[in-house]
Simulated scan of single mutants.
Amino acid sequence: MSRRREPVPFAFTAEADPFRSNVAPPPRERPSAGQVAGRALFGLTLIAGLAGSLILGMPALSQDAPPAQTQHSVASDGR
């Protein structure tokens, strides 16, 4: 029993169906010890950078002390 095929706008997609295979792709290679160490070091560097920027940026974000002086424009002194 053969299937009746409908016209497809792209011929290569219609012709690719009969050539499908049940062969599985080869398994992925396991990363070497150097690659694992490099990825871990890169991740630790990113985390340390984010933590450092947070620690250094916290004093700038705090609103504990009000400003000592209010600034005013010198141009408005003569009015």
Rank of each mutant, 00 (worst) to 15 (best):
S2I: 05
R3N: 05
R3P: 05
R3H: 00
R4A: 09
R5D: 03
R5P: 10
P7F: 03
P7R: 07
V8F: 02
P9E: 02
P9A: 02
F10L: 11
A11H: 02
A11S: 12
E15M: 08
E15F: 00
D17W: 04
P18N: 01
F19N: 07
R20T: 08
N22L: 11
V23Q: 09
V23D: 05
A24Y: 00
A24W: 03
A24S: 09
P26H: 02
E29F: 04
R30L: 13
S32R: 10
S32Y: 06
G34Y: 00
Q35Y: 06
V36S: 10
A37H: 08
A37N: 12
R39G: 01
R39F: 03
R39T: 02
R39A: 12
A40S: 10
F42Y: 01
F42T: 06
G43K: 01
L44P: 00
L44D: 00
T45W: 04
I47V: 02
I47H: 01
I47W: 01
I47M: 06
I47C: 07
A48G: 04
G49E: 03
L50K: 03
A51E: 03
L54K: 04
I55Y: 05
L56A: 13
M58D: 13
M58N: 06
P59M: 07
A60P: 05
A60M: 09
L61K: 00
S62Y: 01
S62G: 11
Q63L: 13
Q63V: 13
D64Y: 11
A65C: 12
A65E: 13
A65K: 14
P66N: 10
A68L: 13
Q69Y: 15
T70Q: 14
Q71I: 15
H72A: 15
A75I: 14
S76W: 11
D77H: 08
D77W: 14
G78K: 14
